[in-house]
Amino acid sequence: MLCLALLFSTGETVAAEPVELFDTDKERVVQTFDNTREFQEAAKELLTSVSGRVLELNPSLAHALIVKIPLVPPQPLVNRQARIEEKISEIFVIMPKKGERKPWMILHTQEYETLVVEFSKEVSTLKKLVQL
Rank of each mutant, 00 (worst) to 15 (best):
F22G: 09
Q81E: 12
A82D: 05
H63R: 15
E122S: 14
S49A: 06
A42Q: 00
K121Y: 01
S120M: 11
V54C: 07
R80S: 08
M1F: 13
L2Y: 08
G52A: 09
P18Y: 01
F119D: 10
F92L: 15
V117P: 13
Q81R: 13
K128M: 00
A43K: 05
P70Q: 05
H63Y: 12
R53H: 10
E118C: 07
N79P: 05
R53A: 11
L6F: 13
A15V: 07
L129I: 02
I91D: 04
V130H: 00
E56G: 08
K102W: 01
D23K: 07
M1A: 15
L126R: 10
Q31R: 15
M1N: 14
V117R: 10
E100G: 07
K102F: 03
Q110Y: 01
V117Y: 07
P73S: 05
H108D: 13
T13P: 04
F39M: 02
T109W: 07
V50I: 05
K26S: 03
Q81S: 09
E100R: 11
V29A: 11
V78Q: 10
L7P: 01
L132R: 14
Q110S: 13
I69M: 01
L55V: 15
R80V: 11
D34N: 11
A62V: 14
K127Q: 09
L6K: 14
V123A: 05
R28F: 03
T109F: 05
V54Y: 02
R28D: 11
M1H: 10
V93S: 10
Q31K: 15
G52Y: 07
Q40R: 13
V14Y: 00
S49M: 09
T48A: 00
E17G: 11
P73H: 06
F8P: 01
R53K: 15
V30N: 03
K102D: 06
V130E: 00
L47C: 03
I106W: 04
I69Q: 00
T10R: 06
K98A: 14
E20Y: 03
E41Y: 01
A15K: 08
V14A: 02
E118N: 15
K97C: 08
V54N: 02
L107W: 08
I94A: 03
V72M: 06
F92P: 03
K128H: 02
T13N: 13
K68I: 06
L21W: 04
T36C: 03
L55P: 09
P76V: 06
E41L: 04
E17L: 15
A42E: 03
S120C: 07
A15Q: 09
E100A: 09
E38P: 03
I66P: 04
A64E: 05
S89Y: 06
L46W: 00
R28H: 08
T32K: 14
L129A: 00
